[in-house]
Amino acid sequence: MKKNLSLIVLVAFVVSVINVFAIINSSNDTSVQAIVESNICTAQGDFMPAPFNEIDETIVEELSIEKNDLICSAQGGVRPPPWDDEEDYVPSGS
């Protein structure tokens, strides 16, 4: 019983510590994508809260489509790299 209890306390503590670091990192992320994503709440709840900042809708649309087009979501264990580097492009026939 003590073993089970210690394990529960340990898991709760470790996850909380990881959680705190992840929260602080995510709140300090200043990349364009992080700022755009920070406007959209994905936590639980029935009514979506209003966004905090006014962000140009075209940037959101572009980022969303860009992410959608470049990232492979088909089955497989290791995700292949995205098709965003021009140096990857090999013209047909060469």
């Binding site: 709760a12 929260i23 995510s26 406007n39 959209i40 905090f52």
Partner: peptide, 17 residues
Amino acid sequence: KRTYNPINTTDFYNMIL
């Protein structure tokens, strides 16, 4: 900080737990 990133992040970890 006027951002949803902290609650989005912690919600993800909480759900796993």
